[in-house]
Design a binder for these strands. Structure first.
Length: 531
RNA sequence: GGGCGUGUAGCUCAGCUUGGUAGAGCAACGGACUCUUAAUCCGUCGGUCGAGGGUUCAAAUCCCUUCACGCUCACCA
């Protein structure tokens, strides 16, 4: 039964296909251009790759996770997030990002600065990745023989482009001007034997230097056009699986031409290239410049990265994944992650078997092998924040309360709960809907007067005096109600007065809990402050 | 125009690959206590599975057609 369900899970399907095609040694690859901060939206590529990588390891295959940093790319536009450095950066348009100075002055180059955001995040996420620099690979001559092969089989290459993409390439390379370093301004005049003749002239926003000259393959002042670069590096890195975003997966796009080049130029089976969707908020792709794509290295403040993997894994590969952390979706996701982890450890939950089994596969794959047996306490985010806030944000007190409620059992992991609570607090303060928030007021609000008649005041003073610190919340509720009946006051008006005094609004979390947490003296002193 | 995805309960979605009685969470309603409060528990309500056709003993699921919505489409990577 479980075997059958496995088949339907995309990570398992891709892993199986990979094993069938390439045996049991794999290189899973990804890539990204460090032209801006690495954020949780562009992390889908590496997360997708990690799913397949981890699945292969669980199936006892050998697998390596590789990631190419495209630091040889040209600087095509100034990102919105760097508009403060507009004037400083403008002269570098069209040049390779590895040779542009870091605008922040922290790292060796523009590319190095943003590469760091990737490296730091992956370390924090606990992913072991072999990181490659495209620039270095060009300098090491890794691409040389591929350029030569393309030139030798020029007609066949152009035939593929014609057939698949609909038009031929006007050249196979972009020359990087040896004089000014620009690769958008060079025009290739001729390419014979080993020698590229070119001229560097201004083109739109890209300023050329006017240099005219020649360069040879071994000088490495050139870069393959993307459609030729991709299959080449997949070939020398021995890539077996490389996920690609749906922006690549247009009919006749770079995926299709890559696959054909593997087959017809390299005469080898092409890597498996699964296509994945984006991560969205309200249907819009997460974006660094719009602020929705939070930096990947900061994710843990908000969410356990494993929970984020879980989100991606449980969704269909090609579907866009909605991650609206500025809504209650956050609580839904974290709660489901907790549920799945508990289910993984044998606890029962309602739902169809298929659904639960799928979540189980997703969560198993998302968790670091060392974390599989950790059992999170079964407490939802809403409840957690409610008790936390009514405990004046005291962690120890919050946990103590849950313990008294019997919500923490012996095998539960308190560390997990503490970490989750800190993340939930970060969410509460930065992203949560205001309905989730409340704060105990130090002084009574203006409107309290309207609620606090002399009768109510007298009621609460008497009521609080008869409450003892060792009473249970249920006992306190009983006192509140019987006293109200005795004095013939409507329950509603009593509670409203209570909440307005302490929170500034006429409703709130369980009053008895609040009284126990704050202590009756705190409330009595608040009452005395009402004008 | 091409590619991909989505359309299932009031809301958020699972289920479709491999056809076999339509499934959760939240919301709503009722109860567990003579509880008009945002933590508990139990129960109830709730769906012509976008529409039409085909295959089949049997279709949310497979095939075709169609409608609506979303994303995406640089000699950028």
């Amino acid at each position: 039964m479980v075997e059958e369900l496995d088949e339907g899970f995309w990570a398992v399907q891709v892993a199986n296909e990979a094993t069938k095609t390439f045996g049991d040694t794999h290189v899973i690859c990804g890539g990204w251009s460090p032209s801006g901060s690495f954020h949780i939206g562009n992390a889908r590529e590496i997360i997708t790759g990690y799913a397949i990588h981890h699945q292969l390891l669980l199936q006892n295959s050998k697998s390596k996770l590789t990631f190419v940093i495209d630091d040889f790319d040209s600087f095509d536009r100034i990102p919105k997030t760097l508009k403060n450095f507009k004037d400083k950066l403008r002269p570098y348009l069209g040049k390779s990002i590895h040779m542009i100075p870091d605008p922040y002055g922290e790292e060796e180059s523009y590319a190095a600065n943003f590469t760091k955001t990737f490296v730091d995040a992956m370390e924090d996420w606990g992913l072991d990745i072999d990181i490659k620099s495209a620039y270095e690979m060009y300098q090491d001559g890794k691409y040389d023989k591929y350029l030569k092969t393309y030139l030798e089989k020029k007609d066949e290459v152009q035939k593929i482009m014609e057939e698949i993409a609909g038009n031929q390439l006007d050249s196979f390379v972009n020359v990087v001007c040896p004089n000014c370093g620009n690769l958008r301004t060079t025009v290739l005049l001729s390419f014979e034997n080993d020698v590229m003749e070119f001229v560097c002239e201004s083109k739109n926003q890209f300023k050329g230097c006017g240099y005219k000259g020649t360069t040879k393959i071994k000088d490495h002042h050139w870069k393959l056009k993307w459609r030729l670069d991709w299959p080449a590096r997949q070939n020398f890195l021995k890539v077996t699986v490389e996920p690609a975003g749906k922006d690549h997966s247009v009919a006749g796009g770079s995926i299709d031409t890559s696959l054909e080049i593997h087959r017809r130029i390299f005469n080898s089976p092409p890597p498996i290239m699964p296509r994945y969707g984006f991560i969205t908020m309200n249907g819009k792709k997460l974006s660094g410049s719009k602020g929705t794509g939070i930096p990947a290295k900061d994710l843990r403040k908000l969410l356990n990265p494993e929970c984020y993997f879980f989100l991606v894994f449980k969704n269909g590969l090609r579907k866009d994944v909605e991650f609206n952390y500025r809504s209650l979706d956050y609580a839904r996701l974290v709660d489901q992650f907790v549920m799945a982890r508990r289910y993984l450890n044998g606890y029962e939950y309602p739902g169809t078997e298929r659904q639960l089994e799928k979540l189980k596969l997703a969560v198993r794959l998302a968790l670091n092998d060392d974390h599989v047996s950790v059992i999170p306490p079964d407490i939802g985010i809403a409840e957690l924040l409610l008790v936390y806030q009514s405990s004046l944000r005291n962690v120890a007190l919050t946990i103590e309360k849950f313990r008294k409620m019997g919500k923490i059992t012996a095998e539960d992991s308190i560390d997990e709960l503490k970490e989750r609570l800190m993340q939930a607090e970060y969410w509460l303060d930065n992203y949560a809907p205001t309905s989730m928030k409340f704060e105990i007021l130090e002084t009574p609000p203006e409107i309290a007067k309207q609620y606090w008649t002399d009768e109510i005041k007298q009621y609460w003073i008497e009521c609080l005096h008869s409450i003892q610190p060792d009473m249970s919340p249920e006992d306190i509720t009983l006192v509140i109600r019987s006293k109200a009946k005795e004095m013939d006051l409507p329950i509603r008006s009593i509670y409203q007065a209570f909440y307005v005094l302490l929170l500034g609004k006429p409703a709130g979390p369980n009053a008895s809990q609040l009284i126990l947490t704050l202590g009756k003296d705190y409330i009595l002193s608040s009452i005395s402050k009402i004008e």
